[in-house]
């Protein structure tokens, strides 16, 4: 179901090309705030992509993916304070910690199904949230402001907003291609099979648990990279990255864009964040409108907004 059809390849090219020329447009408009929003969108797109990998292809509704955003963000803050400022080191640390966290919590959560899985992933993310809230050395509830962004080869290149934007875009494109490769591989097919019919997969000799756990760990690691980007974008890290509302928003993004077609997650993140920004301009109480839209979309459109973006599938 995830053949990189010509249509999809074209759609991906157009979407990413649009992102690539965006800084030139914002420069022409002289609006420097747009690039900040766009960087946030790219970071969330990475996280939504990661979530879609397990939600769309593995059928695992994780309601705790914000935990990985937090892990990535705190990797930047904690290593930065220790004097290690290299972006590569930050990402490696984020990925390593995310992998361990995902391996442990995933192994426990995947023993269960359905509602249990949703609630347990949510609970584990909340555990991470409280861990960082009580970590008073890093500001506890208030969080901590970063002294500087991550460095690349010892150079403070990312202090430039446009450079940070392109770094995020490069990461997003790289991870998108990786995700497409994963879903097209034998591994991805087993994962989809395990979603469709775990019993039958077991009967033909695959252990769904192992494949699902591996996918869960990969997804967590990818989402932690989004956390690294978010921390750099805001130059600020706090437990609010792990708030369960954030996890919910990630699920919303994936659904808005269309479940199980990777590119949709990128589009969904863009739509959801732009909608938020726009509604926030209209009223201080924008969550009421956002929530209303969400409820109506779920109630009145069986495929969510995805129907509009998924003309090539029934």
């Amino acid at each position: 179901m995830t053949r990189l059809t010509p249509t999809r390849a074209w759609a991906a090219t157009i979407l990413f090309a649009a992102f690539a020329i965006l800084p030139m447009i914002t420069q022409a408009l002289g609006d420097s705030y747009l690039i900040v929003i766009a960087t946030r969108i790219l970071a969330y797109a990475i996280a939504a992509l990661a979530l879609d990998l397990i939600l769309g292809y593995g059928g695992m509704v994780s309601f705790g993916h914000a935990a990985y955003l937090g892990i990535g963000a705190y990797a930047v803050a904690i290593l930065g304070r220790a004097g290690i400022t290299d972006l590569g080191a930050h990402m490696l640390a984020a990925i390593a910690v995310a992998a361990v966290f995902a391996l442990i919590t995933g192994a426990i959560s995947l023993r269960t199904r359905g509602i249990y899985f949703i609630m347990i992933t949510l609970a584990f993310a909340q555990m991470g949230y409280f861990f960082f809230v009580s970590l008073s050395a890093y500001g506890g509830d208030d969080g901590v402001t970063l002294n500087a962004r991550s460095t690349v080869f010892g150079q403070p290149l990312l202090e430039n907003n446009t450079a940070l934007y392109y770094t995020a875009l490069a990461l997003l494109i790289g991870l998108y291609l990786l995700a497409v490769a994963i879903t097209r591989s034998r591994f991805g097919r087993v994962l989809t099979g395990a979603r469709e019919n775990p019993l039958r997969m077991q009967a033909i000799g695959f252990s769904p648990f192992r494949y699902q756990l591996t996918a869960y760990v990969i997804s967590g690691c990818m989402a932690s990279i989004a956390g690294v980007m978010l921390a750099n974008q805001a130059s600020y890290v706090s437990p609010s990255y792990m708030d369960w509302h954030r996890s919910g928003e990630l699920v919303v993004m994936v659904v808005f864009g269309g479940i199980g077609n990777l590119l949709g997650a990128v589009a969904g993140a863009t739509i959801a964040l732009l909608l938020e920004e726009w509604l926030a301009l209209l009223t201080r109480h924008w969550p009421i409108l956002f929530g209303l839209i969400l409820v109506l979309v779920v109630l009145y459109s069986r495929d969510g907004l995805s129907g509009f973006f998924r003309s090539d599938r029934s």
Binding site: V251, I288, V298
Partner: peptide, 12 residues
């Protein structure tokens, strides 16, 4: 999950 999450946003 999504619909009730929307309700949480509205009511909160």
């Amino acid at each position: 999950v999504l619909a009730t999450f929307g309700l949480v946003m509205i009511i909160t």
